[in-house]
Amino acid sequence: MSSTGVRPVLYRDGTPVPFITAWSGEHMPSQPVAEVCRRGGTGLGFVDEQIHVDRQYGALWVRMPAVRTGQPELRAVHALRQRQAMSRLLCQMCGGPTVGIRDDERTLFLMGAAGGHPICEGERTSSPPVHPVCARLAVENCPRLRRGWAAALVSYTPVWGVQGVMYSPKTLEPEPDVSVSFMDARRLRWVLASRLLVTLEGVTAVNDLDALCEDSEFTEMV
């Protein structure tokens, strides 16, 4: 790993594969959920739960192999790598750290914005940060981003909550996906999380990725 934090991006058939992408060899096994009693009341758990592995941020997380085998499924996100990237501020493209690179300690975020909508102050996202050069690579290769993108340098990214499947406390049947704040302990107990969400604070829009890459001095790393 270089001092810039940028790592080589993985390619498959000439296409760059983001670090957070799920692969066909990483299909989720069955999730043996049950009602369990823990501090604070009853909630969702695994029959054979390992607390230090299955729970993070007070939430139960989906189980998913992390082997990066088979074929990349570019529309799917790997739950563990997304959580690692978001919690550690790793680049969603290469997996390298994005902190400590800029003198002002700000981090770049990139999102699809077909309608031209900018990234807003206080916006919540499950999309991890990205290095400037990796952002440019993503814009050049991702069909969604080619339809429009928004980027911003962000000063602070406090964790907000999780996205995942809510289970009925009465029937343990899965219900539609939800986003739940860590402040909502009652609902959080019944969610099987698959994404970590953060809030973006201190947002400054970025319109020129090329200029940002030149300032960053690591355009040769991918």
Rank of each mutant, 00 (worst) to 15 (best):
A211N: 07
Y156V: 14
N141H: 14
V159D: 09
R144P: 04
R147M: 12
A85P: 08
A34D: 01
G40K: 02
D210Y: 09
H52Q: 14
Q92T: 09
R102N: 12
S3N: 15
I101A: 11
Y156I: 10
L200T: 04
D184G: 11
D54W: 06
T107S: 10
L200A: 13
L44D: 00
R106S: 15
I119N: 01
V53I: 15
R102H: 12
E123T: 02
C120T: 13
A113Q: 06
V17N: 08
D210G: 13
S30E: 13
P176C: 13
C37M: 11
Q50R: 11
V6C: 06
D54Q: 07
P128Q: 01
R83F: 03
E220A: 14
A205M: 05
V154D: 02
S127Q: 02
Q92K: 12
P72A: 00
E49Y: 02
K170I: 04
D210L: 04
L80R: 09
T4L: 07
A22G: 12
A113R: 06
G43R: 09
R124P: 01
P32Q: 04
L60Q: 09
K170G: 01
F182N: 08
P129L: 01
M166W: 05
G112E: 14
Q31R: 00
D210E: 15
R81Q: 01
A22S: 14
G112L: 06
E214S: 12
L153A: 06
Y11P: 02
T157Y: 05
P128K: 01
R75A: 12
D215P: 04
D210I: 10
P132G: 08
V178W: 04
E105K: 14
R68L: 01
R7K: 13
